[in-house]
Design a protein around this nucleic acid. Structure first.
Lengths: 200, 200
DNA sequence: GTTATTATTGAACACTATGTTGATTAGTGA
DNA sequence: TCACTAATCAACATAGTGTTCAATAATAAC
């Protein structure tokens, strides 16, 4: 997989990554030129093409790195537990680990999930959640007709909702600990919006 | 407001709008050139600049039109009712009207809310929902400390969740009627994810 | 430490899109 | 019909693209 070692390559890739995220933070992912990227990174414009064919290619490449990291954690998730385990002081472990991973890479996620962010990443993230939810829900409801509520809409609802919480977490500067955020997600998922604020 | 009448201007604006949405549908909002836009619309490239300064300006302009239409409807919403009125066969009226408006402009919303869509529009839409929710929730909980659940996170959750449902609605080709979608939104908002599928 | 390797640099290239201008044509409203 | 003005067409300087090549510098391996 990672069979690249030359310090020079690593250095320029790091410089490019920093430059990209810095630019994205101010003007979003659109309209970034190779020229400004190279200048911000302090490297020669031609050098960029030794690593990426294109700005979109570089963006996609960085996206993949982060998504792979998330995917590895996600694959351990067990939605069944999420739905059946009662509220405890220890929120669901894998959720916490996902949030910790995101907090570790704040520089990346705060921009991609924010207002200048990337739709495709939000979508991938949502699809990850949905995939897990779907497999577990179809286990709970082998015959889709048994559910009094269309499962696809339920999944669309719950996945978007949790992403909304994560976005708000970054938007407010990650003031809460991953554990606390996971705890909120668990409570609202179990009790629903009305129940969580104390309405009957 | 709308004091433009010349048929020629209306014609080219319509042609440009159609061309834009058609292009966006295939390659998203990014990297659209004035040249391809003019060609797709069958107008002279220079003519574009008689109407818009820029591609982003045109995009922003079309966004505003749609958002203003939504805003006018949204301002009638009464979240209080959403939270207190029991499930009836008639879902909340304003929600239905918003969904009807969106369905009327399917060509626009199916792309902007979809995978190739625009983050800023999703954000504006979410902010609209949040504004309404916030004013109503602070009415229910004048002292923010009274809520056992942080209101900002609750609002982030609920607004994203409902947008997720709308996105899924367009994603699946608007098979349900606006009334049916509004009914789903109401049920899940009241009963929560677990309650709506019949779990205790 | 020397050497072979290779990433980076800098300059040049043709190409595409930009945004603007001025003169001309053609459609519109009164 | 006629004054007005939107749309067209060609031309322009500018800026970014993606590529190539020779020269330079840093690196890894011996």
């Amino acid at each position: 997989m990672t069979e690249k070692l030359d310090r020079r390559q690593l250095r320029t890739k790091q410089l490019l990554r920093q430059a990209l995220l810095s630019i994205v933070e101010t003007k979003g992912f659109d309209g970034i030129t190779v020229s400004e990227l190279a200048q911000a990174a302090g490297i020669n414009r031609g050098t960029f093409y030794l690593h990426y064919s294109d700005v979109p290619h570089m963006v996609e490449s960085i996206h993949s790195e982060m998504m792979n990291g998330l995917q590895a954690i996600m694959e351990e998730v067990d939605i069944n537990e999420l739905f059946t385990v009662p509220v405890t002081k220890e929120p669901y472990r894998v959720v916490v680990r996902v949030l910790e991973y995101m907090e570790l890479h704040t520089d990346y996620f705060k921009v991609t999930l924010g207002p200048k962010g990337d739709t495709s990443i939000l979508l991938q993230l949502k699809k990850m959640l949905q995939k897990q939810m779907y497999s577990k829900l179809t286990f709970l409801f082998p015959d889709a007709e048994m559910s009094p509520f269309p499962l696809d809409y339920l999944i669309a609802y719950a996945s978007s909702a949790n992403i909304g919480i994560i976005q708000h977490w970054f938007e407010t500067g990650c003031k809460l600990r991953p554990k606390e955020v996971a705890s909120l997600m668990l409570r609202i998922l179990q009790q629903g919006p009305r129940g969580s604020i104390g309405l009957s």
